[in-house]
Simulated scan of single mutants.
Amino acid sequence: MNADLNAKSMVPVTILTGFLGAGKTTLLKRILTEYHGKRIAVIENEFGPESIDNDLLVQDLDEEIVELNNGCVCCTVRGDLMRTLNNLRERRQAGELNFERVIIETTGMANPGPVCQTFFMDDDIADYYRLDAVVTIVDAKHGMTTLDQQEEAQKQVGFADRLLISKKDLVNEADYQTLRHRLIKINPRATITPVNFGETDLQSILDVSGFNLNAILDVDPDFLESDHPDAADDHSHDHAHAHAHEHDGDCSPACGHHEHHHKAHSDDIGAFVFRSNRPFDPERLEDFLSGIVQVFGPDLMRYKGILYLKGINRRMLFQGVHMLMSAEPGKAWLAKDKKGSKMVFIGRHLPQEIFTQGLENCLV
């Protein structure tokens, strides 16, 4: 109970990332200028011609934090993110600033992993802020090309709790479904929503609780199921897409998908799920997971699951980012429950057979 109360008093943080030109700045300008009734501190780390602080907010380049007339705060990162977060914390505790939540914008080329790790590595930050979710914006028109050419874009998709697809009106339905299917293959646990940034519901990207194990499993207990509605929908869409383009010769520019129609996409980032109805031996599992994290940690984006452990009458919930892993007890198993473990691993070139064989060796 105390842990729940403590979590509610912490400042929730959303990490906003996405492809270059996908619309992060458009969304942030709306947050920072609209009277939406929410007091938000935006930490802005996008340097360049489209940066908010260059053309909208900061007149005094020596000032890092600017208060806005809609109750928000804009903060530009000119140094270390930990220092910036602690500065905001100190000024809020002193009553100098008033905000209810934080949104961190990463650069379009950034890997969100190190930003996520900030909230696990610094005690002052971990005690004061609660990492809520990673939200990634994908450009529908250039998304396939960006995923082909930039591994960082694949990492942004792999870390996401929410995927927002912008510019859907610039592509046909078949191409949109092809992109959506690819995103699901990279990250089957993220919710996918097409968005128009003039009408984005802020509530859909706030209070996601993507890093709160109990919360996400309560909201979507089947998020690891292979027959998740998203996966089922996209199987049929992919099938339809293949038949929609049966014509002789190459696609022409007018066809709309000449850039990627004939090309197989082999993404560096991918996901797989492990399931078993047999219980794990707790000690063997802990040893195996510790070893896996040591060896493959840099390539592990996100991993999460529900564990059925021998001798423990509760679900054990676990998750991790890179080499940082945590576990906590979940709900008790009831007599009517079908006990079992479900685990999802998202990462770069992960050897599924090694993971699967190792996990099977940990079963009782």
Rank of each mutant, 00 (worst) to 15 (best):
L324D: 05
H262T: 05
N277D: 14
M109W: 11
M82A: 10
A254M: 15
L147K: 12
C74D: 02
M316L: 14
A327G: 11
D132W: 03
A231T: 10
M10C: 06
G210V: 02
L164A: 09
H261I: 04
R189N: 14
R89Y: 10
I346L: 07
G358E: 04
T356F: 12
A140I: 06
N313V: 05
D299T: 06
M343R: 03
L179P: 02
L285S: 08
Q149A: 14
L206K: 02
I40N: 00
A22T: 02
L20H: 07
K29I: 03
H245W: 15
L224K: 04
D248H: 05
A242T: 05
D122K: 02
D218E: 13
G305V: 04
E151T: 08
G158Y: 02
A110G: 01
F119W: 03
H247W: 13
E360M: 15
D53N: 06
H260S: 13
K310V: 00
C251R: 07
Y35H: 09
I354Y: 13
L20Y: 08
V364P: 01
R302G: 03
P329E: 15
V208M: 08
Q352G: 00
S209M: 07
I15V: 12
V58L: 14
A140E: 14
G23F: 12
G71I: 00
Q150W: 13
M82Y: 08
A232S: 10
L147V: 10
I205P: 01
D148W: 14
P298F: 10
Q59G: 09
M323H: 09
C74T: 02
H235K: 08
G113V: 04
R91F: 00
G210R: 01
H235W: 13
L334A: 13
D268K: 08
T17H: 06
A133H: 01
C116Q: 07
A7W: 06
T191P: 06
V273R: 11
H181T: 07
G23Y: 11
V157S: 14
H257L: 15
A254C: 08
D55G: 15
L359Q: 05
S166C: 14
L85T: 01
L359T: 04
L307Y: 08
F197Q: 12
D201R: 03
G311D: 10
T107C: 14
I103P: 05
L363R: 01
Y35T: 05
H243I: 06
A94K: 05
K336D: 15
Y128L: 08
Q352L: 01
V134M: 08
T146E: 14
K155V: 04
D299L: 07
V208F: 09
E353R: 04
C116N: 09
L224E: 09
R284F: 14
L224P: 00
C251Q: 07
D222K: 07
E246C: 02
A7F: 11
K310E: 13
L28Y: 05
L170D: 09
F159Q: 08
L68C: 00
E64H: 01
T118I: 03
N70K: 01
K168R: 12
E259W: 12
G340V: 01
F19I: 07
L81P: 05
D267W: 14
D123I: 02
I43G: 07
P221V: 10
V293F: 11
T178C: 09
G330T: 10
